[in-house]
């Protein structure tokens, strides 16, 4: 009995000694502020900042501060707190949100073939142009959904297109990278989430696009003419609305013959009484 106790005590002391020595010997001196900054960051470890996890960004912020370092997930508020703690000027960036630029739902874009490979947009994209006549549009297999760490995208079963939740999206940009067709764009969130954008990325000629999809941009240029702020540019049969120049007047929305220009979060238009 006494023997056992002695052995265990000696063993305990011995091992504690080993731990002590190792801890002293291999101690790494680290700026204690890194821990604090890491605590201020959202802790999502999504890698959207370009660093491996929040600690990576925290280390960079403490040791190597620059205007380039930004956590899109935490946004202005987080970066403000961090900047205050570090005694720096806060970086302010316009909040952004992922926007799906394809309106080719099942109803408007006829499906011509049936994909039967591994369920992945990346695999499908390397196999062929797509199951519809449009070689630019959404493949609908949800690579963007599976890559999202914030559960902010889901596939709408009725349209076959991904839907981004404004509230949940942190504009980390993972879906933008995951989409082999480069359909998703990070765009200014806009006041009260109001945005006007072209929901199409087809560079086909108008006739080709129209044949493949009823909701595609046919490059007619009507929106360019109607825009008073010079915010819309036309390139390769595709209109693009510059989010910085756009004043959200929505004239282009009504002008677009295919409905490819989409507005979000505007209050419903007042019905003008017919005279």
């Amino acid at each position: 009995m006494i023997y056992t106790v002695v052995v265990l005590v000696v063993l305990g002391v011995l091992l504690a000694g080993v731990l002590f020595v190792v801890a002293k010997r291999f101690h790494v001196e680290e700026d204690p502020r890194i821990d604090t900054v890491e605590g201020l960051l959202p802790g999502a470890n999504c890698g959207a900042c370009g660093y491996p996890g929040c600690r990576g960004l925290a280390t960079a912020l403490v040791t190597d501060y620059s205007e380039e370092l930004y956590c899109p997930v935490g946004g202005a508020s987080t970066m403000g707190v961090v900047a205050e703690f570090l005694g720096r000027a806060a970086v302010v960036r316009e909040p952004e949100v992922a926007v799906v630029r394809c309106g080719g739902s099942c109803a408007v874009r006829p499906v011509l073939s049936h994909f039967d490979g591994a369920r992945s947009c990346a695999v499908a994209a390397s196999t062929y142009a797509g199951q519809t006549g449009c070689s630019f549009g959404c493949l609908g297999m949800g690579d963007c959904v599976s890559v999202c760490d914030f559960d902010a995208i889901y596939m709408d079963a009725s349209t076959g297109l991904p839907v981004v939740s404004d509230e949940k999206c942190t504009s980390c940009g993972k879906c933008v990278k995951a989409c082999p067709k480069v359909i998703i764009e990070l765009r200014r969130k806009g006041p009260k989430g109001r945005r006007v954008f072209v929901s199409c990325v087809s560079r086909d000629k108008g006739a080709v696009t129209r044949k493949a999809c009823q909701a595609g941009c046919i490059g007619c240029g009507k929106c360019v003419k109607v825009c008073e702020f010079d915010a819309i540019a036309m390139a390769d049969n595709l209109a693009y609305i510059d989010p910085v120049k756009c004043r959200l007047c929505r004239k282009c929305v009504g002008e677009c013959p295919t409905g490819a220009i989409v507005e979000t979060n505007f209050p419903p238009k007042k019905v003008v009484a017919e005279v």
Partner: peptide, 12 residues
Amino acid sequence: IPLLDWIRLGKA
């Protein structure tokens, strides 16, 4: 299992 579909993607 569509092994080659995935492996081909990995190769790319």
